[in-house]
Nucleic acid binder design. Structure first.
Lengths: 139, 139
DNA sequence: TTGTAATTTATAATAATTCTAAACTATTTG
DNA sequence: CAAATAGTTTAGAATTATTATAAATTACAA
């Protein structure tokens, strides 16, 4: 549990003014104990229903992009026409449930170590991420 | 090098009528010796400039989706708002060069076997894909 | 040939995201 | 503490990728 005061400090320390909207988004995203996967639309809905507050779609986009740039969120690539974001910014892997369109975290332990045996001169590996797609098992 | 006759057979065998447009797309995509990564827009440009033929955007979408369904192409998830497709439909992985926004194939051998130690009841694993992000090595 | 079913096509519709510029708010400065 | 200013929010327009539509065209079987 993080207090509002702490979010204000976090925002200010990273050069972002602690506005009402940004604090609200922090509360929705960073007060969960578990990793939280969401799309922009999910987030807007949560704020407008759970928190019962109006927020402009543009503000949500602005804020999420600002948070991503600061390293508080990361985008997860899935074959979808929507961007998925993750509050877990550590290097980890995912299950993607195709029929339910839901992401599930996979620990390093569930996947095991991956050793990339190829390298490109002048380039270094920034991340190694595994996406495991799941389908309904009909048989 | 595959001949037009062979493409016609391939199309017909998979229940797709060999139209002028589909054959042209086959020629662009499947006559390369190497794996080919592209977006719909890339493909339209290639057809209209290199091949100097007009083709409707809708036809390109239809055809690419038909080819994907038949297993002649697969989509690659990258953090982009555009769909990337790959003519290499074997189970393989990718390097993604962040600065150059380019995909590079990785063989199974370069990554090694991946054994997912977790399962979700009622779901089966459809694919396991590794995306290795590369950054410029400054040091 | 000719009928019909599949395909192509231009265009409209939709959906996610970005842009814009005016109103508003947090912070700085005097 | 008030005024200036620089950063934010906002509604709505613009843009971009993609999908839907429905009429014209084409492939192919009878």
């Amino acid at each position: 549990m993080t207090t509002t005061v702490e979010f204000i400090k976090k925002l200010r320390d990273s050069g972002l003014r602690p506005t009402k909207q940004r604090i609200k988004i922090c509360e929705v995203l960073f007060n969960k104990e578990a990793t939280f996967h969401f799309t922009i639309n999910d987030l807007v809905k949560i704020i407008e229903t759970e928190a019962n507050e109006k927020i402009s779609l543009a503000t949500v986009y602005n804020t999420i992009h600002a948070f991503e740039k600061k390293g508080y969120l990361k985008e997860i690539p899935i074959d979808s026409n929507q961007s998925y974001f993750d509050t877990n910014v550590t290097d980890h892997h995912h299950f993607y449930d195709i029929s339910e369109k839901k992401l599930i975290d996979l620990d390093q332990v569930d996947v095991g170590p991956i050793n990339i045996q190829k390298s490109i001169p002048g380039k270094k590996i920034k991340s190694v991420e595994v996406l495991v797609k799941l389908d309904t098992d009909n048989q």
